[in-house]
Nucleic acid binder design. Structure first.
Lengths: 338, 338
DNA sequence: ATTGACATCCGAAACGTTTTGGATTATGGT
DNA sequence: ACCATAATCCAAAACGTTTCGGATGTCAAT
């Protein structure tokens, strides 16, 4: 048998109103009766019906995240973000509603559904695009959200990692090691972080007086396979690079595969570096030099910001920019001797 | 402005009932008016209020999963399961409600809340315990659920991997390689799969006529650090093992750390093997021999079963047992020469 | 005795949907 | 002309909660 406010009210000989207010802790109910009601509720194992509560109060205590099916799920990076968000949501007593979706049209409609059907109080979104329809939509309907990443329009709360500085330091590190022919494997241009990471690459080369060679700039799809394929192309160049920087660890690991397949040794014949510091990065052979994004903490802080947005509190910092940490491991090799 | 059935009804000059039934596809509404209603709904961007729908129809189209905070989140294994479940849920048009919880009392109450507050139609649970209060609870209240793993009481739908056979083959492989002093790092006894995996170990040794030595049986907590610590103890034995089998990959990787720290080489001086085949396993140095659990597919199949349970359809197979695959990599080394 | 203030309680409406059990009209058969 | 049937529509109740606007009773101050 379902136990509702009505059940308790009958049991206590009181009205539903009083029971509701007693349990909610209003001060217009006698302390004794309040205790009695609470005792009864406890005894009967009362759990409020959240659908009813949501319907009435328009608050769901639920955070929504849409997970694009291709590649992201099973993307350790995305999962780590999810962990952070989930962890912090629990802290606030919020739950997480996940909707797995095919990217593209489907994805946007998932947001529409979530928002318009009032299932959630706020949204965390990741993998921001340069021109992101999801952000446009959420801004338009004025639904609370926080993004992990900056896009073109920056008039929304976000938290991001300073990819430019990260790659700048990474490439600087390689230049210090004596590299001058440094290639970069970019992520798809439509992703917002691609440009900033590329900017770091350019700045580092520029300051070192190294011209940028178009042949060393390639683009792939963030997957290991993709990284392997384009690295192959780089190795086939007449004058192949001595170092390869990838926009994420997965592609860097793919590049390492390609290099090994050529009979070369990563870290000795050619340096490789990634971005993210996924757990696997510490265990590749050789371990991968990379730029660490504190992604778990980013998830937690994103949620902090979102809670503020939901409560319509002014954010103390609507734009958080974290400086990532350079993690030097063996894949960037010993100083190059020429 | 919120657009509800009422909005559409007014716009169309019809009743709320008719609009509802038209959109739901009942056949007692004229095809022309149905089309007209659908058009209006489309134009106004109508999205049903799910709280209201759930309240009335007692169906949420949502699957619940509780994620114990310690160790599981950021556990690649668990995340992979989540992916599979999420993926398949999307296939059925279901969403996933995650509730991160401290394990223990809190955790059980999370289930209580989810179930009694009627937020979800079904539950997927993982990491089954030998004597699992969550299962007892869900059975008692007759709430649809599917577990990944068998516990003592088996009168509930589950999907599991035949850990006994997996470890049996793994240990058999090591015996073939010439090992006779084979240690095992067990997971906590309260986890249901510990016993079955241990059973495989015992059977393999028994068939090979190798006595079981208590000193080679140690227990740890599924973490890399834990595996490292107990492996240390094994290496300090007067007659240390020549092979170490761990109940999961994380502990095996920890054991590899301990071995390296002793100045020994994994795969040459001592063999190591794990269980799970997490993504990292392929990239350790040397790559880890392990038993693969098709965990993503397990998630998908678990969800298939759950949907059946929710629809109160009889399950064609209430108990699914998958045979895991042995993945031989370099950590189990070359044949031992004595 | 009247008033005001306060403490404590409650009826009824509202949230947006689904569903029950007709009501109304049109159609065809006698 | 009448009835049975089918097609199409709808009013109202229900789901369980929160909240608005009192209602009632008590007690001290006038």
């Amino acid at each position: 048998m379902k136990v509702t406010l009505k059940t308790i009210a009958q049991e206590a000989g009181l009205s539903i109103t009083t029971v509701s207010r007693a349990l909610a802790g209003y001060d217009d109910v006698n302390e004794d009766t309040r205790r009695r009601i609470v005792a009864i509720a406890e005894r009967l194992g009362y759990q409020p019906n959240l659908a009813a509560r949501h319907l009435r109060s328009k608050q769901t205590h639920t955070i929504g995240m849409v997970i694009p099916l291709t590649s992201y799920f099973s993307d350790p990076f995305f999962m780590e973000l999810l962990s952070g968000v989930g962890r912090q949501a629990a802290e606030y007593g919020y739950d997480l509603l996940l909707s797995a979706q095919q990217p593209g049209e489907e994805e946007l409609s998932a947001y529409r559904r979530m928002v318009a059907s009032s299932r959630i109080d706020g949204v965390v979104l990741a993998r921001v695009l340069v021109d992101d329809p999801r952000i446009a939509f959420l801004k338009e309907v004025r639904h609370p959200f926080v993004a992990f990443g900056r896009s073109n329009a920056n008039d929304y709360p976000y938290i991001d990692v300073d990819g430019a500085t990260g790659v700048y330091r990474l490439v600087g590190h390689l230049i210090e090691r004596g590299h001058r022919r440094i290639a970069m494997i970019l992520s798809p241009r439509k992703l917002a972080f691609t440009a900033t990471r590329f900017e770091g690459y350019q700045r580092a080369l520029h300051e070192a007086g190294i011209p940028i060679a178009q042949q060393y700039i390639v683009e792939s799809d963030l997957t290991q396979e993709g990284g392997c394929t384009v690295a192959q192309r780089l190795l086939d160049l007449a004058s192949p690079p001595t170092a390869i920087v990838a926009c994420n660890d997965a592609m860097a690991i793919g590049a390492m595969q390609a290099i090994r397949a050529c009979g070369l040794t990563v870290g000795r014949d050619i340096a490789v570096a990634g971005f993210d510091d996924i757990p696997t990065a510490a265990f590749t052979d050789p371990p991968l030099t990379t730029v660490r994004q504190p992604i778990y903490d980013i998830g937690r802080r994103a949620l902090d910001m979102l809670i503020c947005a939901i409560r319509r509190q002014p954010l103390d910092e609507a734009h958080v920019l974290l400086v990532p940490e350079l993690i030097v491991r063996q894949s960037s090799g010993a100083p190059l001797i020429r």
